[in-house]
Design a protein around this nucleic acid. Structure first.
Lengths: 193, 193
DNA sequence: GAAACCAGGTAAGTAACGCTCACTCACCAA
DNA sequence: TTGGTGAGTGAGCGTTACTTACCTGGTTTC
């Protein structure tokens, strides 16, 4: 798994051969298949290990603040920071696993659901508390937030640019909380940062 | 290319073999490589053909309305509708091409840039006209919008659910334009503090 | 104390796949 | 007649993910 991570740092998944992985790990190819069902299973196991750390970190950070707005802000910032922290994690989840159906049947996808559930709870809490407008659907909002986070990080990952955590998270919160429509008068400044 | 499209409708790209494509097209495998550099090049050519139609349609629809808010609304709705219209197009662009660097050097990526530029112009127009708040960065906003559209469509594509164009586009515009903060609640908070 | 067991590890091999290459054939212009 | 060309073929090559039979040294079992 460590060899896989090292290789993923410099090359995309389907250009990495099992022979390379074995050589990097200083074992034979055959041994890989004693521990992993196939090459993709190895990838999913790697993802799970990395994802667990990400989830733990985000969970502890969001638990430390109160109020739906604050929790959401923290969740978004921590998520972006996680992508910024590990390029390998980002590449696996944003680029490598989505195109195969097998991923969505894997255990690794369970962690995606868990992560997704965290946001859903925050949003529900905000709805119940009346912090968020009641005419917005949680499902739609969740897709907007995840989509925005992922797209912003994706383009950085692809073009090897650094992810500017504060800028990305700040702008997203700004748009989410206040909307983009220019209000000339009254309460126009709800900027969060 | 038509054979490729037919096959993509029922199976993911890297589970389609060149032998199958050749059989479906009633030619031999060798001939494919007279017209396409490799299997991925064939995929990119297919994408370009489909993408051109999408761009034309969105361009004509957005040209028909005026005002940045209206243009943006139209752009978003037309984009979601395009994903809803062609599952093959959606699958190629959302799932199949992103994971390989070669895509971003291909001609097909040029169309992505063109499509992306359309949105950038709409946003710039809205900024210049004072319709959108000036403290929002166009780049960030573009990522939010594309991310939200793509994520919403992606989950439908993956789980073979129908894309509810009006709901997805409507909710996205609602959040973008007005923000998620509950206004009444906000006033109450302000008067009490 | 031998037998049985078993996890860790190996080497050789296989089928499938993407892709290449030398070649054919029909057509056409000079 | 001749030479060139574009469409098409099909055998085959190298690579790759994966399999299978086997080895080895330590631990348990009777």
């Amino acid at each position: 798994m460590n060899s896989m991570i090292r290789l993923l740092d410099v090359r995309e998944f389907n250009r990495i051969t099992t022979a390379e992985i074995a050589r990097e790990a200083e074992v034979t190819e055959g041994l890989i298949y004693k521990y992993f069902r196939d090459k993709k299973d190895l990838l999913y196991q790697v993802l799970m290990e990395l994802f667990r750390q990400v989830i733990d970190k985000i969970e502890s950070e969001t638990a430390a603040v109160s109020g739906a707005h604050e929790k959401l802000k923290t969740f978004i910032r921590a998520s972006v920071a996680s992508y910024a922290d590990s390029r390998v994690f980002s590449r696996i989840i944003l680029l490598e696993v989505r195109n195969s159906q097998s991923f969505f049947a894997s255990n690794a996808y369970g962690l995606v659901r868990q992560y997704s559930g965290m946001l859903a709870r925050i949003l529900q809490e905000g709805m119940d508390a009346g912090e968020f407008a009641p005419d917005i659907e949680i499902r739609a909002l969740r897709e907007i937030i995840f989509g925005a986070i992922e797209h912003a990080c994706l383009s950085c990952i692809i073009f090897n640019r650094e992810i500017e955590v504060d800028r990305v998270a700040g702008q997203l919160c700004r748009v989410l909380f206040g909307g983009i429509t220019h209000r000339d008068q009254e309460k126009q400044q709800r900027s969060t940062t």
